[in-house]
Write a protein that binds this DNA or RNA. Structure first.
Lengths: 130, 130
DNA sequence: ATAAACTTTCGAGTTAACTCTAATGCAAGC
DNA sequence: GCTTGCATTAGAGTTAACTCGAAAGTTTAT
């Protein structure tokens, strides 16, 4: 029931490279990965779940530094649950804010595109060899 | 009427640093900035407009490399208007796609926060010294 | 007129997040 | 038994986007 995976399999499953997996471990983003008798890493399904969670945080723009903070809290056990929730809520707000700004800039970009279309028409209508 | 600004004033107006302004110029993101008799840069209002536009593109996640492409087209004049519009439309789509993914990840994060709240309650109710 | 505060260039340094290399060892196929 | 391919580590290299420092000229304030 405690199926274990090679680093290669985990790389495929998480779309991180094996290099990155080892890098994350060195950075203490991922900790206490089991080893087999040859010192090879053996990842559990729980490890995968954690890595997938990290990927999602990364996709929302969280820095590795921040993720390390969170991983540190997680290592300390259930007594840090509230701290971790607050941490995520804080990040949530930041991402929300970022999305608002993104939407605003996207709207301005849409306007710019309209302006370009007008300029294009002017240009085409005033060409010498029209 | 052709008011000219010092690098310092432009830095203040665009919230870029003077270092970054010179860096952008070296990268050909900004070109043909006028110089006074001592070789000091003199920015026009049009230059400011362009830099502000670059800032907006940056805020939507466009890389400097991409922005240089666009600046290059712009330097070639009105014949590249269509190419520039298409370039921006392409970028627009990318940002839209990115926002969809961001929203999706944000929703998952919201779920995670709810889960944390449940775990917190369980933890608090099962403490030894409740 | 002299110090403080600007400007210039060139090139080096920084930070984040990988990404790769080298040296070495284990393992599976023929 | 040997080759091919996987694993390990430590540490060096890469890329993007700045950011800074040094040396030297200029302008402003006292």
């Amino acid at each position: 029931m405690d199926k274990l995976l090679t680093i290669q399999q985990v790389a495929a499953a998480t779309s991180l490279s094996v290099h990155t997996l080892r890098y994350y471990e060195k950075m203490n983003l991922i900790t206490s990965i089991q080893r087999d008798e040859n010192g090879y890493r053996c990842y559990s399904l729980e490890d995968i779940t954690w890595i997938e969670f990290l990927n999602r945080l990364k996709a929302t723009g969280m820095t590795i530094k921040k993720m390390i903070e969170l991983a540190e809290l997680r290592r300390q056990g259930d007594s840090t649950l509230t701290a971790r929730r607050k941490f995520l809520e804080e990040h949530y707000k930041e991402v929300q804010q970022h999305m608002i700004e993104l939407q605003n800039n996207l709207n301005l970009l849409a306007n710019k595109i309209v302006t370009y279309k007008e300029m294009e028409n002017n240009y085409l209508n005033n060409r010498p060899n029209k």
